[in-house]
C-alpha cells in the first residue's frame, strides 16, 4: 500500500505535466516486481487477476500483471496503426486524420503503461511480433482498406471490453484505476468512430459481430444488470437495452482473441 501511495503522488505530478522524475526514489525500499513476461504467466494465475476484489486494494504484482496485459493490447494496436499509416495507398487521405489521432493515443498508452509498470517495480513485457493476417485469415489487411477498418474495429471493441474486464481487479488501486478508466473511454471513442467509418452504428447491438469473429462480441446481448432484467423496467426497446451497456471480457477471453494475431 505504501508503494501505491507514492505511486499516486507521482502519478498526480505526471497528470499536471511533469515526468516521473521521482522514479529513483521509488525504486528504493519498495517491494517485489513481477519480473516475468506476460507470455510466461500460466492461465491459472491470469484468472486470479480477473474479476477479483482485494481487500485494501490489489497488490503491486497483480497490478503489474494487469498493466502488462493492457500493454500487450496497446502494443498490438500501436503497431497496427503505425504499419497502416506507413503503408502508402492504404488509408484514404480523407480518413488519415482520424487514424493519426488514434495512432497517437495508442503510442501514448504504450509509453504510459511502460512507465507505470516500471514505477511499480515491474518489468514491461517486450514488444511481441505480430501477424495481422492472423495466420492468413486476413491476407489483405494492409492492402484492402475495408479489411484494415474491420480489424481496427475488432481491436478497439476488444480493447474496450478488456479494460472493462479488469476494472474490478484494479478496485482500490486509486490512480492506477483512474488511468485505466481514462484509457478505457478513449478506446470507446475510437471504437465508435471506426465502426461508423465502416457504416455501422457506433454502439454494439445485441452480439452482432459484423463479419468479425463472434468471440469479440460474445455476451454483448446481455440485458440483465445488477440482477435486474432491464427490458422489464424501461420503455426503451430491447435492442437499445443491449446497446446501452457494453460488456466486459476476462483476460483469458481477450488473450484468446488477441492470441491469433501474435506470431507463434
Amino acid at each position: 500500500m505504501k508503494a501505491l501511495k507514492i505511486f499516486e503522488e507521482v502519478y498526480k505530478e505526471d497528470v499536471i505535466g511533469k515526468n516521473f522524475s521521482r522514479r529513483e526514489t521509488l525504486t528504493k525500499g519498495l517491494g517485489f516486481g513481477l519480473k516475468v513476461a506476460l507470455a510466461a504467466i500460466p492461465f491459472g494465475l491470469l484468472e486470479t487477476f480477473s474479476n477479483k476484489a482485494y481487500a485494501g486494494g490489489p497488490s503491486n504484482s497483480s497490478i503489474v500483471g494487469i498493466l502488462n496485459f493492457a500493454l500487450t493490447l496497446e502494443y498490438l494496436e500501436s503497431t497496427y496503426y503505425t504499419t497502416g499509416l506507413s503503408t502508402s495507398g492504404l488509408i484514404p487521405s480523407a480518413d488519415s486524420t482520424v487514424f493519426k489521432q488514434i495512432s497517437k493515443h495508442e503510442s501514448d498508452h504504450v509509453a504510459l503503461l511502460k512507465t507505470t509498470i516500471t514505477s511499480l517495480q515491474g518489468t514491461p513485457v517486450p514488444l511481441p511480433t505480430f501477424d495481422f493476417t492472423a495466420g492468413g485469415t486476413y491476407p489483405d489487411v494492409f492492402s484492402n482498406y475495408q479489411t484494415f477498418l474491420a480489424l481496427s474495429n475488432a481491436f478497439e471493441d476488444t480493447g474496450v471490453r478488456a479494460y472493462k474486464g479488469q476494472a474490478a481487479a484494479l478496485s482500490g488501486s486509486g490512480a492506477v484505476l483512474t488511468a485505466a478508466l481514462d484509457i478505457h473511454s478513449v478506446e470507446a471513442r475510437h471504437a465508435c468512430e471506426v465502426r461508423r467509418m465502416r457504416g455501422l452504428k457506433g454502439w454494439i447491438s445485441y452480439a452482432e459481430a459484423n463479419r468479425l469473429p463472434a468471440a469479440i462480441y460474445a455476451g454483448e446481448d446481455n440485458t440483465t444488470q445488477d440482477n435486474i432484467n432491464v427490458t422489464t423496467i424501461t420503455t426503451a426497446p430491447t435492442i437499445s437495452v443491449t446497446e446501452a451497456f457494453d460488456e466486459p471480457l476476462t483476460m483469458k477471453e481477450v488473450l484468446g482473441i488477441a492470441g491469433s494475431f501474435l506470431k507463434s
Binding site: N51, S171, S185, Q225
Partner: peptide, 14 residues
C-alpha cells in the same frame, strides 16, 4: 465499478 464501466464506454461512444 464494473457496472459503471459498462455505461461509461457507451457514453464515450455517444
Amino acid at each position: 465499478l464494473t457496472l459503471a464501466g459498462k455505461i461509461v464506454s457507451v457514453e464515450a461512444r455517444h
